[in-house]
Design a protein around this nucleic acid. Structure first.
Lengths: 122, 122
DNA sequence: CGAAATTGTAAACCATAGTTAACTTTTTTT
DNA sequence: AAAAAAAGTTAACTATGGTTTACAATTTCG
């Protein structure tokens, strides 16, 4: 348990998006979603297992643990909040998506909260 | 010529800060400024030379090329602009510094310009 | 059902960006 | 000027996070 990197957060978020879309939680889908190879996703799932974020058996779909789901939700929430904020600023859809993927993992909680307030009060 | 990574931008910015402070452009100072080892800076200077951002001879201080200085200036400008913006939002000094170091390299030009306008109009 | 397509896995490899240890060169100090 | 300190360098190593190739397991479809 412990340790999430930008990469791991991206994978958790991607699986969470599949979950929200009621799609199967398959590595191949994440591979296409993130534009990385299937082996890259496979390796990441092993790390996520070690960290206690997901459960899986060979050839099975992944399954979130409570802590994994909590993180996935958090990252997803950051993404949507930051995206709304950027769109409000007048940034194009494409760059808003691009930029929040890059900053959603790194902003301090303090900064994020401030932005969240701005979006809510909109 | 070409290719700047987050790391290289950080080093260029650090040397630029020394330049602004009229300190010698020494690797050891950058090492302390960024909290990395001297060999890490040394390796980075070789990459920056290959990329045509600086000139140096063994054991000499570095010297910006025009393209290196342009990039250094740009990153520094992003840093100060983003920091002002975060401070205006009410973010603490500490987190403002922390956060803009992390996002100054990745924001699209479009998003940055929007934020720059907000800061200017303040 | 069986062939074809898709998905998951394993192995070997690569690039980036850092580390420590040890050594050389340069600068400073006495 | 010699010794000490500081700066620069080199080599060997590490971790992260990707890649391609090849193959195994599973699913889908004619």
């Amino acid at each position: 348990m412990k340790k999430t990197t930008k990469a791991i957060e991206d994978y958790l978020e991607a699986f969470y998006i599949l979950y929200l879309n009621k799609e199967p939680l398959e590595s191949a889908r994440v591979s296409r979603l993130l534009g990385v190879s299937r082996p890259a996703v496979n390796k990441a799932t092993h790390e996520m297992m070690k960290s206690g974020y997901i459960n899986k058996t060979p050839y099975s779909e992944i399954e979130f643990t409570p802590s994994g789901k909590r993180i996935a939700k958090k990252v997803y929430h950051r993404h949507t909040t930051l995206k709304k904020y950027l769109l409000n600023l007048g940034v194009s859809e494409k760059n808003a998506d691009r930029d929040c993927c890059l900053i959603e993992h790194v902003l301090s909680e303090e900064t994020f909260k401030k932005i969240e307030t701005l979006v809510k009060d909109k």
